[in-house]
Write a protein that binds this DNA or RNA. Structure first.
Lengths: 183, 183
DNA sequence: GAACAACGAAACGTTGACGTATCGCTCCGA
DNA sequence: TCGGAGCGATACGTCAACGTTTCGTTGTTC
């Protein structure tokens, strides 16, 4: 069998990496700080990952939260609002909130970070696009609405408030946002 | 009189700093690279600014572009679209495009950068908010539209596309965006 | 044109992080 | 129970950027 110590170290390190990323940003993370937080020797990290970026990407991918709350049987409008409330929650509250600027900045310069960041965003975005498309098919949303553009406006508003203003969007405002964009 | 060499050096350095910031981001800027680009001795920089952040903030504030194209006499709808096209242009093309992630990330950790970033965003946002309010007063836009929320959705979409996807919003798409958000 | 201020270049010491290597210790699997 | 794998600690060399200092040169002021 494979030594259980390996998996244990891996998890300690990945968890510490995400926490560290959220607290000090991509530029601020150091292997040494991750090792210290994980209670692990620096050498153990280099044993498992070739370099910092591999570790960070692995950590983020392992621990990221899924943007898929249970959508009960309800109107598409309410499902969209629920989804947005969840995104707003994650963007404001979670450990990953502070990773977002780190990812954005990292993506700017490192092609691997960029690829990861864009793929990750696209995956989360798709659920919303699909949902709106369903609403259009069902006649609940006007056919003139472009699901992709609407999704961009909805998510954009949430991220804009988080990144460019001192007051992130309160999840309670999500309904008003849906009312505005999905006529 | 004060020595003209001082002002000349200042301008060379500030210009170089903005360019450098745009090319390599906040984390990537070094005093030495700015000095080299400005064709100036490193000591000259330290003669004028106490540290890197002071220099960067000064540079950004000195050279930032205003978000105010001439708004001719036309419908509010068209004015909004024009304004958004301009924002999309700046966000995609200008030297400042690559400063945005740098500012976002910097704001995350440095209160001085944050204060600057939020104030700067708010100033640019206000023109759009006012414009939409005018449109509502004129009856051109439905009274149920919240100018602030609509502005957030409009600008948010532009920044979202720039920051989270590989394909920034084409200025030509601005009209569709306005159609979507301002019913 | 003399005194002086600002300058560019370059050397310097310092710091912080990288990634490597070594070395006992401990835990695991056979 | 024993050999080996994984581990933490620690020391090491390297590098890049910081911010300081020195010094001879150039441009400015009076």
């Amino acid at each position: 069998m494979t030594d259980p110590r390996i998996e244990r170290s891996r998890m300690l390190i990945l968890r510490a990496a995400v926490e560290e990323l959220g607290e000090v940003g991509y530029g601020g993370v150091t292997i040494e700080s991750i090792a210290a937080r994980a209670g692990v020797g620096k050498s153990t990290i280099y044993r498992h990952w070739p370099d910092k970026l591999d570790l960070i990407a692995d950590a983020f991918e392992t621990f990221h939260e899924r943007m898929v709350p249970e959508l009960g049987i309800q109107s598409v409008h309410d499902s969209v609002a629920l989804l947005l409330r969840h995104v707003a929650d994650v963007v404001v509250d979670s450990r990953f909130s502070r990773c977002i600027p780190a990812l954005i900045e990292g993506a700017e310069r490192d092609p691997r970070v960029r690829e990861f960041h864009h793929r990750y965003s696209a995956e989360r975005r798709q659920a919303l696009i699909d949902l709106i498309a369903v609403g259009i098919d069902a006649g609940e949303i006007g056919p003139e609405v472009d699901p992709e553009l609407a999704t961009t406006a909805l998510l954009g508003a949430i991220f804009y408030r988080r990144l460019m203003t001192p007051t992130p969007l309160d999840p309670g405002e999500a309904d008003r946002l849906v009312d505005l964009v999905l006529r």
